[in-house]
């Protein structure tokens, strides 16, 4: 990074660290923080979408759809996320490629499963093997997003399902009395009101999601815990210009501070959001706000 970094052995402590902390690997480490934040930013709304669909399915009148919704929630919630991540991404990837294979290569006569190999035609590969590395990484990232969203969507579905049930029955009856249809009641009365009941559960889910990010490496993403381990491990002078002992402790300490700070910021933001959502609601919190204003 800096011009004096060419011969790190001769540098003083401060300069040594300024070089050490700006090496290419450390840059990857810093980029990993952005990756984690980006993943969270994308996963949260997608998981919420999955959760919303799941909750709607679970309270559907059409029985098979209801069973599907309830089974999805029960199964995914019952399995530790780590066990899920260990086989699900590969399965998901194969499922995508299988579908593309069926569409793109109808004339293919060889079996797709050859022994333990999973072979699809070249055109069905995702991404194509000629694609540049960044596309492979983006695809891996998207797979991770989908996997996270499916897992956390099940939890979100459970929370939203509870939130929908918590909206006072009288509110819905009033809507019906005004002549609203089922659909209108759902979208105009139930959905706007359920958030305040669901928010505590959803904020908790967000906190759990933050803390699940170290599992990203299982999904093939080089996340911050992976780099902290990699960088903190003992380095001998044969393979690096910056040899050092077992420094994992310091890297993990840094991660600890990062996670604590992130949690604190999230807590503050979610508290504000709760205040906002409570406004004008038929809950004790909303009542308290109304009285305070009056």
């Amino acid at each position: 990074m800096f011009s004096y970094c060419s011969d790190p052995d001769t540098l003083g402590t401060f300069r040594w660290f300024s070089c050490y902390l700006t090496t290419g690997v450390h840059m990857s480490f810093y980029v990993a923080f952005l990756k984690v934040l980006l993943l969270l930013a994308i996963t949260a709304p997608v998981a919420l979408g999955f959760g919303f669909l799941g909750a709607m399915a679970a309270r559907a009148r059409f029985a098979p759809l209801r069973w599907f919704g309830k089974t999805y929630i029960a199964i995914v919630r019952g399995v530790p996320d780590i066990a899920f991540f260990l086989f699900f991404v590969i399965a998901l990837d194969q499922a995508f490629e299988y579908m593309r294979h069926k569409v793109l290569c109808p004339d293919w006569d060889q079996p797709i499963r050859q022994g333990s190999d999973f072979v699809v035609c070249t055109a069905a590969k995702l991404p194509l093997s000629t694609a540049p590395q960044w596309m492979h990484e983006t695809y891996g990232f998207l797979l991770a997003v989908v996997t996270f969203a499916i897992v956390f969507g099940a939890f979100a579905a459970n929370v939203l399902f509870g939130g929908m049930r918590a909206v006072p029955r009288a509110q819905l009856e009033t809507a019906e009395a005004y002549g609203m249809s089922q659909r209108q009641t759902f979208w105009r009365i139930l959905v706007p009101q359920m958030w305040v009941y669901a928010l505590p559960g959803l904020s908790n889910l967000w906190m759990v999601l933050i803390k699940a990010t170290p599992l990203l490496f299982l999904l093939g993403i080089e996340d911050i815990v992976y780099w902290a381990r990699e960088l903190g491990g003992t380095k001998t002078s044969r393979f690096t210009d910056y040899p050092h002992g077992d420094w994992r402790m310091w890297y993990f300490l840094f991660l600890l501070i990062f996670y604590l700070a992130f949690t604190r910021v999230s807590e503050i933001v979610l508290e504000r959001l709760m205040q906002k959502l409570t406004h004008g609601q038929a809950t004790s919190g909303g009542e308290a706000q109304r009285r305070a204003a009056a």
């Binding site: 290419g24 690997v25 840059m27 093997s129 000629t130 492979h136 393979f239 690096t240």
Partner: peptide, 25 residues
């Protein structure tokens, strides 16, 4: 043609990540 080579990047001197963040070894 592009061939993708899988490695672990954590087993010097066979394969490891060098200071520049690339697979080396």
């Amino acid at each position: 043609q592009t061939i993708r080579m899988g490695t672990e990047g954590a087993y010097p001197p066979y394969n490891f990540i060098n200071d520049a963040g690339e697979v080396d070894g």
